[in-house]
């Protein structure tokens, strides 16, 4: 079998084994307990029955996730540039960034609802807070990890601080930035979901997947709850693939992490 085919066949086989085990587990349970683990078939049926609700909720969650993710990416990049310029600035701000990261969203959420109201704004802010930290930390690390020899070379040429940043530090930090972006991409849909769960609003069909999860669990619609989880996974995959594509586009022609085939 060709390696390419094997790469497709292996995960497919793993999936088949897992689904078989899933059905096995379902039917091994006592009949009255089987509702705890709906079968993949039942989950598919839930998708069919609740398709329009799930799709609308997924779109709402995507909106919050995209907004929060976008704000986090741009703000963190600018902040990282600021932080990279001086060690005293880094030292004075880092502890507070840590505090921001350590504060649980569950506690921030009700405060946010008071400040900006329940709904998209709160969801965006919560996604922002969750995505922000790995982006700042990675990008700052990248900006201060520039090859010393090259920094000295630029100093030798008398390049200005701005030229050094633009031609040397920022390009060299891009792989770090994309590492942060990848982590943030997996966090963004989860952040939006948690935001929706804790500070979402269903007014005007504005509810997202988190809101749907509350409703389905209160109605004991377990197959639909599993379908909601699967939808969130798909969202995460889409976000991650988007960032991977972006990262490939930005890095593949010069960075060693992408092997070149034309050599």
């Amino acid at each position: 079998m060709s390696p390419r085919l094997l790469r497709l066949a292996l995960p497919a086989a793993t999936g088949a084994v897992m689904i078989a085990a899933w059905y096995g587990l379902h039917f091994w349970l006592d009949a009255e307990m089987r509702f705890l683990l709906p079968t993949p078939g039942q989950i598919l049926a839930a998708f069919r029955d609740n398709g329009s609700d799930l799709a609308r909720a997924a779109l709402n969650t995507t909106e919050g996730a995209l907004l929060g993710f976008g704000f986090a990416a741009s703000v963190s990049f600018l902040l990282a540039v600021g932080l990279s310029l001086s060690a005293p600035v880094r030292a004075s701000l880092y502890p507070y960034l840590m505090i921001l990261q350590m504060t649980p969203v569950i506690i921030i959420a009700p405060i946010l609802v008071l400040w900006v109201g329940a709904g998209l704004k709160s969801v965006t802010v919560i996604t922002f807070l969750i995505c922000f930290f790995p982006l700042v930390v990675n990008t700052t690390q990248g900006l201060v990890s520039t090859d010393r020899n090259l920094v000295e070379l630029f100093a030798m040429w008398r390049a200005s601080r701005w030229q050094q940043l633009r031609h040397l530090r920022v390009p060299a930090a891009l792989p770090y930035f994309f590492t942060g972006l990848r982590i943030a991409a997996t966090l963004a849909p989860i952040g939006a979901l948690v935001g929706d769960y804790t500070a979402g609003s269903s007014a005007g069909d504005g509810g997202g997947l988190g809101f749907l999860a509350i409703i389905y669990s209160s109605q004991a619609k377990y197959p639909a709850l599993f379908a909601t989880a699967a939808t969130t996974c798909v969202l995460g995959f889409i976000f991650t693939s988007g960032v991977l594509a972006l990262s490939w586009f930005a890095l593949h022609h010069w960075h060693d992490s992408y092997e070149r085939s034309d050599q």
Binding site: L153, M156, W157, A159, Q163, H167, L168, A172, L174
Partner: peptide
């Protein structure tokens, strides 16, 4: 003009642009 043991070329930059670099400053 300086030549170093470790080449010190910029990674994200073509050979031609690397050669141009010293002209950008000063």
């Amino acid at each position: 003009g300086f030549v170093f043991q470790g080449f010190n070329l910029l990674a994200r930059t073509t050979a031609l642009e690397n050669v141009e670099l010293p002209c950008l400053y000063g």
